[in-house]
């Protein structure tokens, strides 16, 4: 029996591998209305602040909005790069989240807005994610992904790490937090109102952990590292070719922030 179960789980993991990368978006129909509304309420402050910042910046710098739109499109394309899962020799590919990159370039609040718009397009045209699950997806990818990536980048800069490693940290941490957010969103589905709060939380915590382990054990663990390396290389490349872009976007402020990788 053990061998059969092990075989089934390996087959299931392999079947899911090529596609699991898009599992960072919780699909339409999964969340009950209550949870859907809770997640929407949670993201409102971030989206409002992001939109206000965009408005303010648009007034001061008229060319900022096309810049945000185009960088957003670039990050959208970046998030579709088919990165091969290490060890499977091209049998399966995974896709980066991209929010770490957008948070570094545009700041975490604007990145939340970009993530929200990208998720809306993906929900409608790629059927990845959904409209009633947009709240939880923005929370995991936009809020958790952007803020964790941004702070990881700034922390690495303060530690005096090279630009490549700062980008690497942002890519890895934002990816990990995005999957943690998705796991929380899914794990809370087993939360039962009939049970006492502590028991219900225990059940949910167990489910969150299991989902996170499944994500990490399949393609997402290696993907985090791969995304980190890609973000690191991308930033180093921009610094090497057009350092002015990083100065203008305030990714690096002083010469000491930009030790090339």
């Amino acid at each position: 029996m053990k061998k059969i179960l092990l075989g089934i789980s390996v087959v299931c993991a392999l079947l899911l591998l090529p596609h699991v990368a898009h599992a960072m978006h919780i699909t339409e129909g999964i969340l009950p209305l209550k949870w859907s509304l809770i997640w929407f309420i949670l993201i409102i402050p971030f989206v409002v602040i992001g939109t206000l910042r965009l408005k303010k910046k648009k007034r001061n710098v008229p060319g900022f909005l096309p810049l945000v739109g185009l960088v957003g499109a670039a990050v959208f394309v970046f998030s579709c790069f088919p990165i091969p899962v290490v060890g499977l020799n091209g049998m399966a590919t995974a896709h980066p989240a991209g929010t770490g990159m957008s948070a570094i370039l545009l700041g975490p609040f604007v990145s939340v807005v970009i993530a929200g718009i990208a998720l809306f397009i993906q929900a409608l045209f790629l059927a990845h994610g959904g409209l009633t699950t947009l709240g939880v997806n923005i929370f995991s990818m936009g809020v958790l992904g952007s803020f964790s990536g941004y702070f990881a980048f700034r922390l690495a800069q303060r530690m005096g790490l090279k630009l490549f490693w700062c980008g690497f940290m942002a890519g890895v941490v934002s990816d990990l937090c995005t999957y943690l957010g998705t796991s929380i969103g899914l794990g809370l589905l087993v939360f039962k109102e009939g049970e006492t709060f502590s028991v219900a939380m225990m059940h949910s915590a167990k489910a969150i952990l299991e989902i996170f382990v499944v994500f990490m054990a399949t393609s997402q663990g290696p993907l985090c590292i791969a995304e980190g390396i890609v973000v690191g290389f991308a930033l180093s490349y921009v610094y090497k070719v057009r350092p002015g872009i990083l100065y203008n976007l305030r990714v690096i402020k002083e010469e000491r922030d930009a030790i090339p990788g």
């Binding site: 810049l67 185009l70 790069f81 370039l105 290389f233 991308a234 180093s236 921009v238 872009i245």
Partner: peptide
Amino acid sequence: TWFKTIKSFGSLGGMLIIRSITRAENAH
């Protein structure tokens, strides 16, 4: 190879950022 692929994606990502910003300036 895997590492070459990742490096290529890195420079591709960097190039995308540069192109998008140049394009944004021209579009504006």
